[in-house]
């Protein structure tokens, strides 16, 4: 196709794109958009041409992002936001600056990618994962109990070799059970079910139950669990199983990464408009390079000092997901060889 012809057919070409495209000048005035962008953003005809972007894009985040790119004027900049809700469609948005041949900023170009289909597929996958995990729970519970019975000698005495092998089987089943529990928690977070059943919650009571469940694990390593709870804590609106999973994950982590005879402390108090929960341990600590990643799914520190510790690598991502579902925040302080403290703030109202 000769260049001239191609240039003339540019409009039909961009109108044929599967993604939306939106171009502004450097002042943020809309210069060009295709039919897909019209449909996605709800712009009517050519009415928006030469108008400021914020007047026609009814999504503050997107308009703000375009203006930010224009104002920042850095040599190269691209920004992507995932799953933005505009007019009931979920978009992945890419905003880039446009420069002339001298590198001067002359405007911005935005790509709008409809990800509704991807979200729908995601949902099917997540439902499938939930179903499989639920199906695994019963056989895992049964086999674990059967292994325990054999180990306890309730079906006859075992020799040392049999006992050793059986113990390994039991540990592996236990690991699988933990993985299933964690996967179900991740699914609950992704489905948003931790914000569905909200009830007024006495955190102290939920904590006591979590401690009760964790006590055997602490006892095995001769770790002292000390609990300090401020009197008359206000109730918070929260999801019971979410908060319980949050406590169990944090306490179980603290026990796992703390050597024998160590200490794990849990402190619950009011801090302004928040309930503050601190879980601290005298454990091995987290290396600085790992701190930015500890809340990522399946991230685990892989080193000589942690290789004997079992886990799914999902615990902290679950904790963070639950805390965020309750509009709270989580932070961590750690010193290698000394210990780690996680601090969670959850708003009272």
């Amino acid at each position: 196709m000769p260049y001239r012809v191609m240039k003339e057919s540019l409009n039909p070409v961009i109108d044929s794109l599967a993604d939306g495209i939106l171009v502004t000048d450097k002042k943020g005035k809309i210069m060009l958009y295709n039919q897909k962008a019209e449909a996605l953003l709800g712009i009517k005809g050519k009415a928006a041409l030469d108008q400021p972007v914020q007047d026609h894009i009814k999504n503050e985040v997107l308009a703000g992002l375009i203006n930010k790119i224009l104002i920042l004027d850095v040599p190269y900049h691209t920004e992507e936001i995932c799953l933005m809700d505009i007019r009931d469609v979920r978009l992945r948005v890419h905003v880039n600056p446009v420069r002339d041949s001298n590198g001067l900023l002359i405007g911005s170009v935005t790509l709008l990618h409809d990800v509704a289909q991807i979200s729908a597929i995601d949902k099917i996958k997540s439902n499938f994962l939930t179903m499989v995990s639920h199906q695994l729970k019963s056989p895992l519970s049964s086999t674990l109990l059967q292994a325990s019975i054999l180990l306890n000698g309730l079906a006859g005495e075992l020799n040392d070799k049999q006992r050793d092998l059986l113990q390994k089987i039991k540990d592996k089943i236990k690991g699988m059970t933990e993985l299933v529990v964690d996967i179900l928690d991740v699914c609950r977070i992704e489905e948003g079910s931790y914000i569905e059943q909200i009830e007024p919650l006495n955190l102290d009571k939920v904590l006591q139950r979590a401690i009760e469940l964790m006590q055997p694990q602490a006892h095995d390593k001769n770790i002292t669990l000390s609990v300090a709870v401020e009197d008359n804590l206000p109730l918070i609106s929260a999801n019971r199983s979410g908060i319980e999973a949050m406590f169990i994950n944090l306490i179980s982590n603290a026990i796992k990464y703390t050597p024998l005879d160590g200490q794990v402390g849990i402190d619950l108090r009011r801090n302004g408009q928040y309930i503050q929960m601190k879980v601290s341990d005298t454990g091995m600590g987290i290396e600085e390079k790992d701190i930015p990643h500890i809340f990522d799914k399946f991230y685990r520190e892989r080193s000589e000092r942690t290789k004997h510790i079992s886990g799914t690598g999902l615990g902290l991502s679950i904790v963070k997901g639950i805390v965020e579902a309750h509009h709270g925040s989580i932070s961590v302080e750690s010193e290698v060889g000394k210990g780690t403290t996680f601090t969670i703030l959850i708003p009272v109202r």
Binding site: K137, L140, S141, T177, R240, S241
Partner: peptide, 10 residues
């Protein structure tokens, strides 16, 4: 109670 489920009280 089931694996990984808290007790619903309500």
């Amino acid at each position: 109670t089931a694996v990984g489920e808290a007790i619903p009280t309500t």
